[in-house]
Computed example of a mutant assay.
Amino acid sequence: MTPQRILLGVTGGIAAYKSAELLRLLKKAGHEVRVVMTEGAMAFVQPMTFQALSGEPVRTSLLDPEAEAGMGHIELARWAERILVAPASANFLARLAHGMADDLLTTVCCATDAPIVLAPAMNQAMWRNPRTLRNVAVLDDDAQITRLGPDEGDQACGDTGPGRMLEPEQILLRLVADQPVDGPLGGRHVVITAGPTREALDPVRYLTNHSSGKMGYALADAARQAGARVTLISGPVQLACPAGVARIDVTTAEEMLSATSRAVDEGCDLFVATAAVADYRPAEVAGDKIKKTDGTVSLSMVPNPDILATIAARTDRPFTVGFAAETRDVAAYARDKMARKKLDMIVANDVSQSGLGFNSDQNAVTVFSGEGEARFGPSDKRALAVDLLDYISHTMNA
Rank of each mutant, 00 (worst) to 15 (best):
P242F: 03
P115F: 07
I307L: 13
R5V: 00
N304H: 08
I311Y: 12
M165A: 14
T146A: 11
M42Q: 14
F92R: 14
V285Q: 05
T107D: 03
R134N: 03
K342R: 15
G158E: 05
H189S: 12
V117Q: 14
T315A: 05
A90E: 10
K28P: 00
G163L: 02
R247P: 12
T320Y: 05
P318H: 09
V35T: 13
V35S: 11
A41N: 09
D294V: 10
G99L: 01
G216V: 01
N363I: 07
A90L: 08
G183M: 07
K381S: 00
A228Y: 10
S352M: 09
V347N: 05
D361M: 04
T49R: 06
A20T: 03
P65W: 08
V321T: 04
A67V: 11
V330P: 10
A121V: 06
I14R: 09
M71V: 07
A97N: 06
A101H: 09
A312N: 02
M215C: 15
A80Q: 06
S234M: 06
T160F: 14
R314A: 08
D178H: 05
T132D: 00
R317F: 03
I74M: 14
G377R: 04
A86E: 04
A41S: 01
V272P: 01
P378W: 00
T146K: 06
A278W: 00
M301S: 09
T208M: 13
A332E: 15
V285N: 01
H189N: 10
L53G: 01
A364E: 14
G186N: 13
G30E: 06
T38R: 10
G153N: 06
T395K: 12
N129Q: 11
Y391T: 05
V302F: 05
R174I: 01
L148E: 04
Y217M: 04
A97R: 08
D380V: 05
E21Y: 00
L139P: 12
F358C: 07
A94L: 13
W127M: 03
P180N: 12
G12D: 03
C157R: 06
I83M: 08
F44Q: 02
L96W: 12
A156P: 10
G70A: 15
A101T: 09
V237H: 08
R34S: 00
D113A: 14
A348C: 05
V58I: 08
A332P: 00
V204A: 02
E373Y: 04
T160Y: 10
V138R: 15
R340S: 15
V367T: 08
A246D: 06
G355W: 04
P318S: 08
